[in-house]
Amino acid sequence: MPAIRTTPADTAPGPQAFLAAQTRWRLVEILFWLALLSPFFLLPTYLTLASQIAITALFALSVDLILGYAGIITLGHALFFGIGAYTAGLVAKWGWGEAISGLVLAALAAGFVGYVTGFIITRVHHLALIMITLGLGLVAVEAANSASWLTGGADGLQGVRMWKLLGTFEFDLWGYSAYGYSLGALFVFFLISRRIVHSPFGLSLRGIRENLDRMPAIGAPSRARLHKIYVISAAMAGVAGALLAQTTETVSLETLGFQRSADVVIMLILGGTGRLYGGIVGAIIFMIARDQLADMNPQYWYFWIGLLLVAVVLFLSNGILGGLDRLLPRRRGDA
């Protein structure tokens, strides 16, 4: 553990030093990522689940960038997840089954839609913001259903065929390739996100989250910066969707649906917002709990999931990581 404490209460070390201290890798972080490799050896029969958890974690990470760091609460982020999924799915269906370029195209498509909708999103706040994100998501579902000649409608997109990953790894029944691929993507985008939130740009977003009107006064144009992070987040969500489409070789309307938008926010809050790892931990806990509970009791598992959520709120307050922060007093105190 580094000896420097960087609580805001300390005599200010200056913004550069503050950011530098935050950027340093801590031992637990390294252990955490190493632990995520363990399913390959310890739990090879859970790799398909692990792969879908990694995808969901990436999706949650994308939401954390706007919700946790920039204060944009969304109930429609599956819009971008779904656009990414359909883009990657369609590209593969039309004969280009190469995975990585599919991800890039999906990111571009989702980012573009994020750019367009961003003009609306960055102009509204509070309940109106939440409801507009929700409305955009619902419009997208209906549009995809209407365009069934393109999307396959309610039956889902059929005929997605992927080539071997990097020309070598086939998407196997066990999910070795799928998990390696999804985890790799998660790690890359985690590094990017980490870089973003610990940059001056990321810091200005937190300022905007706390006070929208003051930031322009000190030289940070709120709306432009929100727009920028929204596009980045949309592109990341699109990548997550593309990963799901590629690893399952199918895309359904549900990838755009309200349920997916709501679930990811639940997982993020469960893990703890505004700390990058929150979405990842939330996705891991929520999806493992759901899988295990549903195995034990396929009919009523959601009773226990509900209790889990209630318990986390009552006993841990700011999500699981927030709660652990309080329980472990020696932790640094920033958000």
Partner: peptide
């Protein structure tokens, strides 16, 4: 607000079950 959301959504799950 986020805590309120999580708590009440949890209750929706419980009540549906």
């Amino acid at each position: 607000a986020l805590n309120q959301v999580l708590l009440t959504i949890g209750l929706v799950f419980v009540s549906a079950a």
